[in-house]
Design a binder for these strands. Structure first.
Length: 359
DNA sequence: AAGCCGGGGGG
DNA sequence: CCCCCAGGCTT
């Protein structure tokens, strides 16, 4: 079948249409008011797998606390984590902090100037490197995030699963072919903004789309069937018990290991209930074996449900009386008795915040 | 290639 | 309830 328009003309029309739309419709976001590489970098890390509306207040607080890469490099781990509290994917904060120290101490405070050089920093992959280089340094390199995958899979009617590596490679190639020499940062942001506000996962607003005349999926009426995704396995559900243990006006907290789930965060001690085990038996067993204290389980404070990325949990939170034992963590890195008035200095997981106000 | 890694909002 | 989000790292 002969193409209605040449591929080259189609690309030119897409560039023109998206750039014009973006200059008219772009949201006024804090990191768009500057080309400071530090601000652009911070925004890109914070927005990984995170919606703009969710990330924006975190960006404002974070950059107010650490206005420069030197300030971030000099910060304490706990301070950085506290500012990330509630945003999720906490390894981003750890990698960001590590990278800030590298830039400040090993690169003399000078940021990398190319996408390739950015990728050497921890937490910066192909997407983030392309975003920073194109936005802050005008380098004509592509980005491919969830929005761009959706936009391109519709415009070019990609029928293969976009979870497949070969399809990803093809999409990257399309994106690289599209990105203009001039205003690459605006173009990349235009594709993402279109994906976020017009070319949405469900019920896309095609009538509002500046490139609707060039969209292969729309012309076939299959836009809601793109992108093609593989379905994910069902996530398991776990039953946990958690102990709230007061002693002399303080509560027993434990710090999670720096790597892995909720790395470096503080939490009330607890763990999974064995099948057939009562909550009271589980509390006594877990607190003795994993945290080194003997307790007497008391009343139920809360039942909290929480969903993580790959499992779900029900936390049964009980008040417990401390009987004996010096807190000694098995899998955690340290434990402390902390007064309620100082909780504000500790980064807690969301699942703990769901019952913290009840204490 | 597949799994791990949070939390929130929309349908 | 399921899906997805300005993804990267590890195995």
């Amino acid at each position: 079948m002969a193409p209605i328009e040449s591929a080259k003309k189609k690309r030119a029309a897409i560039r023109r249409g998206l750039l014009a739309w973006y200059r008219r419709e772009a949201r006024d976001l804090p990191w768009r008011r500057t080309k400071d590489p530090y601000a652009v970098w911070l925004s890109e890390i914070m927005l990984q797998q995170t919606r703009v509306d969710q990330g924006t207040p975190y960006f404002e607080r974070f950059i107010a606390a650490f206005p420069t890469v030197q300030a971030l490099a000099a910060a304490k781990d706990a301070q950085v984590l506290k500012l990330w509290e509630g945003l999720g994917y906490y390894s981003r904060a750890r990698n960001l902090h590590r990278a800030a120290k590298i830039v400040a101490h090993e690169m003399d405070g000078a940021f990398p100037a190319t996408a390739e050089a950015w990728r050497a920093l921890p937490g910066v992959g192909r997407y983030t490197a392309g975003a920073i280089a194109s936005i802050a340094f005008d380098e004509p390199v592509a980005v491919l995030d969830g929005n761009v995958i959706r936009v391109l899979s519709r415009i070019f009617d990609i029928t293969e699963s976009t979870d497949d590596t070969r399809t990803r490679d093809r999409l990257w190639e399309i994106a690289e072919t599209l990105v203009p020499q001039k205003s690459p940062g605006d173009f990349n942001q235009a594709m993402m903004e279109l994906g976020a506000r017009v070319c949405t996962p469900r019920a896309p607003q095609c009538a509002e789309c500046p490139v609707r005349l060039h969209c292969d999926a729309l012309s076939k009426g299959v836009q809601e069937q793109r992108p093609v995704r593989k379905k994910k396995a069902a996530t398991p559900h776990y039953e946990y018990v958690v102990g709230v243990i007061p002693k002399n006006g303080r509560y027993l907290l434990a710090k999670r290991p720096d790597n892995g789930l909720l790395g470096g965060m503080w939490e009330f001690p607890g763990g999974p209930v064995l099948s057939g085990e009562t909550h009271q038996a589980a509390l006594k067993r877990i607190l003795r074996e994993e945290f080194g204290v003997t307790v007497k389980p008391g009343g139920l404070i809360a039942v909290v449900n929480h969903a993580y990325s790959h499992f779900k949990v029900t936390m049964n939170v009980y008040r417990c009386d401390w009987i004996s034992g010096t807190p000694t963590p098995a899998a955690h890195t340290k434990m402390k008795w902390v007064p309620r008035s100082r909780f504000a200095n500790y980064a807690f997981p969301k699942a703990n915040h769901k019952f913290l106000d009840l204490l």
